[in-house]
Amino acid sequence: MAAKFQTWWQGLRYRGGGTMVAWLLHRIGGLAMVIFVGMHVFASFLTQQFGSGFGTTLNIIYQSPYFQAPLYFFVIFHALNGFRIILLDTFPKLLEYQREVTWLQWMVFIPLYGLVVFFIIAGIVSGE
């Protein structure tokens, strides 16, 4: 038990910097999307074929801003981060500027996600 706690703690304290945060968010976001898309396809199948109310229940959850805000965060981050990975894999010389590229990625991400948050909040305010 103590040894396990030790590894967890070391894992949390590991100073991978910005690129490690990007790796972690990419992984968590990917898992979140697999679960979301899987449940969504399954629910639409049940609704379409058996007229089940399960799909409608899930749609109400999906449409809530508390679900949409993190989902959009993960989708946009995963797309941008994946694009960065493809670019750096294709042009390995750019790996030297890994840190800078990761900061550049956040500079693209923040206004894009800010726009999404603006529309979500505008939707709440107008009572959609």
Partner: peptide, 16 residues
């Protein structure tokens, strides 16, 4: 899109 999405997602799950 469904083919690419499902394959990409489940392969990612396999890697994790």
């Amino acid at each position: 899109i469904a083919f690419f999405g499902i394959s990409h997602g489940l392969n990612g799950l396999r890697v994790i």
